[in-house]
Amino acid sequence: MSAIDKSEKKVLLVTGSVLSLFIFSILYARGRNNDLPECLPFNKTYLEPKVTRLDKETYQVYAVAQMWQFQPSQIVVPVGSEVDFFVTSKDVVHGFNITEKNVNMMAIYGNINKTTVKFEKPGIYKIICHEYCGIGHQGMQAEVIVNYPPGTINNKNQ
């Protein structure tokens, strides 16, 4: 009884190798391309909502969530821009979800969350708070407006 059957041994061996291959591939792929939110130290400047243009196609957004709004509530960037979102909260836990871009972060008091996305297509991208944050939660929304071609941004802002 106790000795393992030959065919069972074979099955175990095959399963074991397939499993290792699997785990190795996961590790390899995730090691090379880990797009989970980044871990940043907190700094008070993040509490001032702003959109900064770093160069033609690169933007930095300091997004501040609070009961029950995001600031800035409208973010305007040109098509093709790459945006770093730095997200924090002034009060309770909020969510920061841009469905079309798979941006999915929690905004937490005293913590900074960060991710980078590229907006290739024009349109209005909704930012939705998807963590319960009190009685006004169901109305907490903002938007990223991606509308004009790169290079024309200065005209628009003057």
Partner: peptide, 29 residues
């Protein structure tokens, strides 16, 4: 859950809540 102002006053060096809604577009660096 029904109030953006903390239950107890915030210690002074911490952020306070409740500033008005703003709309910000890109500013140049």
């Amino acid at each position: 859950p029904d109030n953006p102002v903390p239950v107890q006053p915030v210690p002074s060096d911490r952020p306070a809540a409740g500033s008005p809604k703003t709309s910000v577009t890109a500013e140049n660096k």
